[in-house]
Amino acid sequence: MLQGLFVLLLFQLLGETVARGLGLPVPGPVIGVVLLVAALAIRARWRRGEAAKGGPLPVETAADGLLRHLGLLFVPAGVGVAQSYHALGGQLLAVGAALVGSTAITLVVTVAVFRLVSRGVERSAGR
């Protein structure tokens, strides 16, 4: 667990360093994700000779632990948010309508495009 957590923190640190060092517009943790995927891919290629033995890697255990409770991590920010809704005054309803409407539109459009293209790919592969 500790080793896995260390790996996650290390890659976040690397990501922040790269993002800030190179002045990239991409946030550090996102670069950390890219670096971690690259590291895991390199490791898998290296270890191809030895059959995939043993249980999950420490970093997998730590990642699964964090992702299983991902929602928890948004609670502190959410509590701050819930206390500031009164800043909206009488516009609460209009804001809520715009927000819910746009979220529903985004979900429907995104899933529709995904399915359409995915079906197109399957059809051309089947031919």
């Binding site: 943790p29 730590a62 990642a63 502190p76």
Partner: peptide, 25 residues
């Protein structure tokens, strides 16, 4: 409240990196 909750909030960074594991899998 945030004095205490900040430790949970901090884990957002490592949790974002953890997405790399699920992506690779």
């Amino acid at each position: 409240y945030f004095e205490g909750a900040q430790f949970v909030h901090f884990a957002l960074g490592p949790a974002t990196v953890a997405l790399g594991v699920s992506l690779f899998r």
